[in-house]
Design a protein around this nucleic acid. Structure first.
Lengths: 138, 138
DNA sequence: TTTTATATGTCGTATTACGATACATCAACC
DNA sequence: GGTTGATGTATCGTAATACGACATATAAAA
């Protein structure tokens, strides 16, 4: 919960602002990298969420929605576009016919591999800045 | 630069995905908090950027754009709405008549103070998770 | 003064996530 | 074993908003 009596110092505000600034720059880097790789940022994030889900098992529309923090109908539309672009394949879940299972194509795997390497490098680069700002908090 | 030969492990992908997931949850928390406080997320971020800028000095449209990583025309439109909502005041820079200086109103100060306290608490809460994921990188 | 750069402003457009809604499938229960 | 409710996915219209293209005003340089 919040502690409404504690007033933030100017340095406290600056730290919060700086944290968001670092995040924006990182997200900007990510979006530009994705576009250079021929993906929309959303598509890139969807591929990463699918790849990073569990131990490589396929993911459903609803689970993808939860990982991306979007509504399930948005996730369904997203899955359509990913399919049209040849990035994922859809299949019915045999154990529950309502479910649609999504899996990456080899095209998606390739693109995601390159992008992810670049992201690892970028994260390593900004890590010190992030840690410096996070050091403000107990 | 990237190291294209190094293939990420499954755990590497999962860590990248988890990092973005934590970020999404944090941003979601931030947006909901802002809306509960009667602000759009964008307005909240603008107030924070203004407040956190330098040592409390006023900020120009262009500098605000840079801190928010948006185009300057978007920043100008944003400043209009902030003004209409009584959150900032505009004034000409005497040393450069082209510049518009933005300052927070006391209403904005109050709302931002409450929101910022909540954000400090949330950041303290998620800090261990962020650090655990960041530990993946050199 | 003319030219060039900088700072801000206006407007139409396109993207995209969402709410509302619909439909199909599963589960539970009498 | 049909009825009821819950769950998973899909469709469609709408609203929000950042952007590109352009315009204007002031400053700095030539």
């Amino acid at each position: 919960m919040t502690t409404p009596n504690a007033r933030l110092t100017q340095a406290g505000y600056s730290a919060l602002a700086e944290f968001r600034y670092i995040l924006r720059r990182f997200l900007e880097f990510s979006e530009e990298s994705a576009r250079r790789a021929g993906l929309t940022p959303r598509h890139h994030q969807a591929l990463l969420a699918i790849k990073g889900y569990g131990r490589g098992q396929p993911i459903t529309i609803g689970e993808l929605a939860e990982r991306l923090r979007i509504r399930h109908n948005t996730s369904a539309e997203l899955a359509n576009r990913l399919c049209e672009n040849g990035l994922v394949t859809r299949s019915q879940d045999n154990e529950d016919q309502r479910r649609v299972l999504l899996q990456l194509t080899s095209l998606a795997e390739e693109r995601l591999a390159d992008l992810s390497n670049a992201h690892v490098d970028e994260l390593a680069r900004i890590k010190p800045m992030l840690e410096r700002v996070l050091a403000e908090y107990p």
